[in-house]
Simulated scan of single mutants.
Amino acid sequence: MIQSMTGFGKHVIQLPEKKITVEIKSLNSRNLDMNARMPSAYREKELALRQKVAGVLKRGKIDLGLYVEITGEETSSQINNGVVKGYMNQLSEIVPGEDIKLLEMALRLPDALKTERGEVDEDEYRAIQQALDAALEEIDRFRTEEGSVLEQDFNGRINELKSLLEKVSAMDTDRLATIRERLEKAVADLQVEVDANRFEQELIYYLEKYDITEEKVRLANHLDYFLTTMAAAGSNGKKLGFISQEIGREINTIGSKANYAPMQQLVVQMKDELEKIKEQMLNVL
């Protein structure tokens, strides 16, 4: 079962004096690229929270947000009385004014508020971990559901590639016969006498260069391997990407050897299906 790298998870926990919200968003990325936003008082726990997220999500561009809203009387910021009074005295020396106006101006200046940073309470940290676990479960479920949609799309396109490959195989005999007739006619048009045995040997050698038997076998194996890998436990986005490259290599070789318009038209259709697979593959974990 494959998973998408796109997802969203959110969980809210209400404590006696705080509301804690954990949000996780993820988009596709070649590797793990995580950005964390949280109040400075919780930075000491950032590394542990990052490790927990990385252990579950593995890959993608991930935004982790920890938001804390004070709902009680507790506050980590206090007015710095001495600094505010000093600002007010300096302001009144410049332009006399009402105390309330001076206070408003003073509170906007640097260091008017002081924030006391203490250690995160263990009970509160356990609550944050619980909220993170719940958000991770939600985003993992989201990714799995998105992955199911991608899997259905991949199944349809791989089966279409198999159908096109069968058509290529069905016309291969006619293709070689047409190429042979074309070569024989070209030699006949030259109106020169040639050694029949030597011409037959050269013709066989030439036709062997256009033989696509190996490419057809390898392509069929790659398509089956893609489906097997997709159905395996865990998500194998990078591996599926490598298999897609091998599928493309065989399709390109068939196209270069075809030398036959009806087969080249099928190859174009195969390339179109594979291109759509590769576009969606960017979202696979």
Rank of each mutant, 00 (worst) to 15 (best):
H222S: 07
E46G: 03
V12M: 01
T228I: 02
A233T: 13
A258F: 03
S163M: 08
I128T: 08
E166M: 09
E151M: 14
K52W: 05
L165D: 06
I158N: 09
V53M: 05
A188V: 06
E166A: 13
E181S: 07
D211Y: 11
L183A: 12
R43D: 11
E215M: 02
F142P: 07
A220W: 00
K45G: 11
I24R: 07
E104W: 01
N252V: 00
K238H: 13
T71C: 10
K58G: 04
E208T: 03
E98M: 00
E215W: 04
A135P: 00
V12T: 14
G72S: 03
L103D: 08
L282M: 15
L32K: 07
Q280D: 00
Y260R: 07
E137Y: 10
N221W: 02
A233H: 06
T21E: 15
M1P: 12
D195R: 00
Q264L: 08
D99A: 14
V284P: 04
Q201W: 10
D123R: 15
M5G: 06
D111Q: 15
G9T: 03
K271P: 10
K18V: 04
I251W: 01
L219H: 00
V194D: 10
F199R: 09
F226W: 05
G147Q: 06
T229S: 04
D33Y: 12
E202I: 00
E146N: 09
R141D: 06
I204N: 03
E181W: 08
D211C: 11
L27W: 06
L227I: 15
Y87S: 11
E193A: 13
G241S: 08
A135T: 02
T21I: 14
S163C: 03
D195W: 11
F8N: 00
D195L: 06
T75A: 06
N89P: 02
N283T: 05
F226T: 01
L102Y: 09
D272Q: 02
A127K: 12
L161E: 10
D63W: 13
